[in-house]
C-alpha cells in the first residue's frame, strides 16, 4: 500500500517483524490479540489508550519517513 502511494500506519505488537519486512510507519501496540486495546487497563483507560494509538497513527501518516520507523505512544500522555 505504501508503494502504491498510500501512507499506512501499521499498528502491531511484533514490531521487529514489521521492521524486517520493511513496513515504513509502525505504531507499537501491547498484545497480539488486541492491537488497539489493552484489556488490563479497564474500560475507560483502555479507550484513552486506543485513542492515543489512533492519534499516533495519524501522526505517522503525516510524517515523512525514509525507512521503517517506529511511532511509539509517548508514555507521559497515556
Amino acid at each position: 500500500m505504501e508503494r502504491a502511494g498510500i501512507p499506512t500506519a501499521l499498528l502491531c505488537n511484533l514490531t521487529s517483524i514489521a521492521e524486517r519486512v520493511g513496513a515504513p510507519r509502525i505504531v507499537p501496540t501491547r498484545g497480539i490479540p488486541y492491537p488497539t486495546g489493552d484489556p488490563s487497563l479497564g474500560a475507560e483507560k483502555e479507550r484513552a489508550w486506543r485513542r492515543r494509538l489512533v492519534e499516533r497513527g495519524l501522526e505517522a501518516v503525516a510524517t515523512a519517513v525514509h525507512k521503517p520507523t517506529l511511532f511509539p505512544v509517548d508514555r507521559e500522555t497515556e
Binding site: 500500500m1 502504491a4 502511494g5 498510500i6 501512507p7 499506512t8 500506519a9 501499521l10 499498528l11 502491531c12 505488537n13 511484533l14 514489521a18 501496540t29 497480539i32 490479540p33 492491537p35 488497539t36 489512533v54 497513527g57 495519524l58 501518516v61 503525516a62
Partner: peptide, 15 residues
C-alpha cells in the same frame, strides 16, 4: 481499491 475511492491514508491493525 482505496485509491479509486480517493482514500489518502490508512491505519492497518495487525495481530
Amino acid at each position: 481499491d482505496l485509491r479509486r475511492q480517493g482514500v489518502q491514508a490508512a491505519l492497518l491493525t495487525a495481530t
